[in-house]
Amino acid sequence: MDKDFFVRQIDAHGGMLYRVAWSILRNDDDCKDALQETALKAWQKRSALKDERYFRTWIVRILINTCYDTQRKRRRTVSIEEIQEPACPPPDPSLALALEALPEKLRLPLTLCYSEGMSYAEIARALHLPQATVRGRIHRAKEQLRKELDAE
């Protein structure tokens, strides 16, 4: 993988990377750090990507690990008050609230599937989970999201 290809791919997938990072971290400062670190780590580990067609799944996996590291460093001590209010609201604020209410283990596969269009197989690779588990989590996520939206 040469640098041009790498920069083009990062540029093309920037929005997706941000949404995935936000799904886990819910804090723009942390997202910024995680995105920066992900780009640097990915370049260092580029020889591990055997087939460039899998760039998206591969970089999502690196990002998720980086986000978990960030979370661990924070030691889960961030209170609700400390989570920053986004500068501008998302296009569908009630959907955003409903999505926020889901536990991360459900929110992340749902986001990868319905926001990013990844297949169950790709999500399974990115999350290191069996496909059956991915399917189950997405099913539960949809059920819970529906409940959250109905409760509004």
Partner: peptide
């Protein structure tokens, strides 16, 4: 579902 997310902030895109 993408409407649940706001656009990527400029600071995040610049950092990336």
């Amino acid at each position: 579902l993408r409407d649940a997310f706001r656009p990527m902030p400029d600071a995040c895109r610049a950092a990336l």
